Lab assay of single mutants.
Amino acid sequence: GHYRIRINGREFEIRGISEEEIRHLEEALRNGADEKILKEIVDRLRG
């Protein structure tokens, strides 16, 4: 998958993330885990 997200007015492209991972992120966001989720995304993109 290849997705664009906007955070604090800046747009980011996220590549190589699966539909299942996105559902997991959405679930966590609904549970209020904003900073933790951003850290997970950044860590994943770093490799």
Rank of each mutant, 00 (worst) to 15 (best):
R15Y: 15
R4M: 13
I37E: 14
I5D: 07
R44H: 10
H2D: 12
I17W: 05
E20P: 07
R10M: 15
I41W: 07
E35N: 06
H24V: 15
R6H: 14
R44G: 12
I41Q: 02
K36G: 10
G32M: 05
D34T: 13
I7E: 00
R15G: 05
E19Y: 11
A28K: 07
L25R: 00
L45P: 02
D34Y: 14
S18R: 05
R30S: 13
R46Y: 13
K39I: 15
E21H: 05
R4F: 15
E40A: 10
R30N: 10
I14M: 04
L45K: 01
K39E: 14
I7W: 07
R30D: 08
E21L: 04
N31R: 10
H24C: 10
F12L: 05
I7A: 01
G47R: 03
E13S: 04
L29N: 03
S18I: 03
H2V: 12
L45N: 04
R10K: 13
E20W: 11
D43M: 07
D43W: 02
L29V: 14
I5S: 00
I17Q: 02
L45Y: 10
E11N: 04
E13L: 04
R44N: 13
K36Q: 13
I7Q: 00
E40V: 06
R30K: 06
E19Q: 11
R15C: 09
N31M: 10
E27F: 09
I22S: 04
G47I: 06
L38H: 01
I14P: 00
I14Y: 02
L45S: 02
F12V: 10
A33K: 06
A28Y: 11
H2K: 06
R6S: 07
E26M: 08
I7Y: 04
L29H: 04
L38I: 13
L38M: 08
G47E: 14
Y3W: 09
G16Y: 12
G47A: 11
V42L: 09
A28W: 07
A28T: 09
F12G: 00
E26C: 04
R6I: 15
L38F: 08
K36E: 12
L25S: 00
N31S: 13
D34G: 10
D43Q: 05
D34C: 06
K39C: 12
R15P: 09
H24W: 14
E21W: 12
F12N: 00
E21D: 15
I14F: 15
G47C: 06
G1N: 08
I5Y: 03
D43L: 05
E19H: 11
L38C: 03
E19S: 12
I22W: 12
L45D: 03
R30F: 12
A33W: 11
R46C: 06
G32H: 10
S18W: 02
G47K: 06
L29W: 04
R6L: 14
E19L: 14
H2T: 14
H2F: 13
Y3H: 03
I7F: 10
I22V: 08
L25M: 04
R23K: 14
R4H: 14
A28G: 05
I17E: 02
R30L: 13
R10I: 14
S18T: 14
I17S: 03
K36H: 13
I14C: 07
G16M: 05
E20L: 06
I5V: 12
R10F: 14
F12H: 03
N31C: 01
N8M: 05
D34K: 05
D43I: 09
R4P: 06
G1L: 06
R23P: 03
L45Q: 02
E20Y: 07
A33E: 07
I17G: 05
E19R: 12
D43Y: 03
R6D: 08
H2R: 08
E40Y: 04
S18K: 08
R4L: 15
L29M: 14
F12M: 03
F12K: 00
R15I: 15
R6T: 15
E26P: 00
G16V: 10
L45G: 02
I7C: 05
I17R: 02
R30T: 10
R23M: 14
G9V: 01
N31A: 11
F12C: 02
R30I: 13
R15M: 10
I41M: 07
K39F: 15
L29T: 03
L38K: 02
L29E: 03
I14A: 01
R30W: 10
R4K: 14
N8R: 02
G16C: 08
E13T: 11
A33S: 05
Y3M: 04
D43H: 08
S18G: 08
K36L: 12
I37G: 07
I17V: 12
L38T: 02
N8G: 08
I41P: 00
E13W: 10
E27V: 06
D34L: 08
G16P: 04
G32Y: 05
R6P: 02
N8F: 11
G9S: 01
I14K: 00
R46D: 13
I5P: 01
R23T: 08
Y3V: 06
E21V: 05
H2G: 14
E40G: 09
E40I: 07
G9M: 01
G9Q: 02
L45W: 09
G16K: 04
R30Q: 12
L38E: 01
E26V: 07
R46E: 14
E35W: 14
G47Q: 12
G1I: 07
L45T: 02
S18D: 05
G9N: 05
R46Q: 15
G47D: 12
E35A: 11
H2E: 11
I17H: 02
I41T: 03
S18P: 04
I14H: 00
I22E: 04
A28R: 06
R30G: 08
N8V: 01
E13R: 03
N31V: 11
K36F: 11
E13N: 05
L38D: 00
L38A: 03
I22M: 07
L25D: 00
L25F: 07
E35T: 08
E21R: 03
A28Q: 12
F12I: 11
S18N: 03
N8H: 05
A28P: 00
N8L: 05
R4T: 15
R44E: 09
H24T: 13
D34F: 11
K39Y: 14
E27Q: 05
R23V: 09
K36S: 10
R46P: 09
K39W: 14
N31Q: 10
R46M: 15
N31I: 09
E11I: 14
I7S: 00
E35V: 10
E27T: 12
E20C: 14
L38V: 10
A33F: 08
E35C: 07
G32T: 04
E20M: 07
Y3A: 02
I41S: 02
E19D: 12
I22F: 13
R15T: 09
R46S: 15
E19M: 11
I37N: 06
R10T: 05
E35L: 08
